[in-house]
Amino acid sequence: MIAFHVNGEAVRVDVDPEMPLLWCLRDHLQLTGTKYGCGEAYCGACVIHLDGEAVRACVTPVAKASGRQVTTIEGLSEHGDHPVQRAWREENVPQCGYCQSGQIMSAAALLAEVPAPTDDQIDQSMAGNVCRCGTYDRIRKAIHRASQEQG
């Protein structure tokens, strides 16, 4: 049994400790907001927060979550109104939407640490997230907007 918190709720799972957190969340906890895109840490579709730090759930063994706080896109904010989510709406960022959970979680982690990032800092922090639809330009704008709004 591995015990941890997901979006504030205590959970216990009886799975292979090496199972990536991604599949534990998606297959065992029915939290499908965290996406699979590559499974090998290339694309960022699976980014979640572990004790507030952005991590890639596809390469994080579930055992690493033991006793810690996991936050997924479903729990980033209670009403879907985290400044990053609001900015994403304002800039109409998503196209297919598939990469956006990971993009938002990465952006939120960036802003938590660097409240007013420069373009260069955005480049550095978001280089791990692929968007095949090509929403990068709007992602950049939305991060700046969220930065201003969280003030």
Partner: peptide
């Protein structure tokens, strides 16, 4: 007129359901 897509809200909150999300 510019119009937000209907799935926008679901997409920024992780509720949007894709093929891999079918359970």
């Amino acid at each position: 007129q510019p119009l937000p897509i209907v799935d926008l809200d679901d997409m920024v909150t992780g509720r949007a359901s894709f093929g891999l999300d079918v359970r």
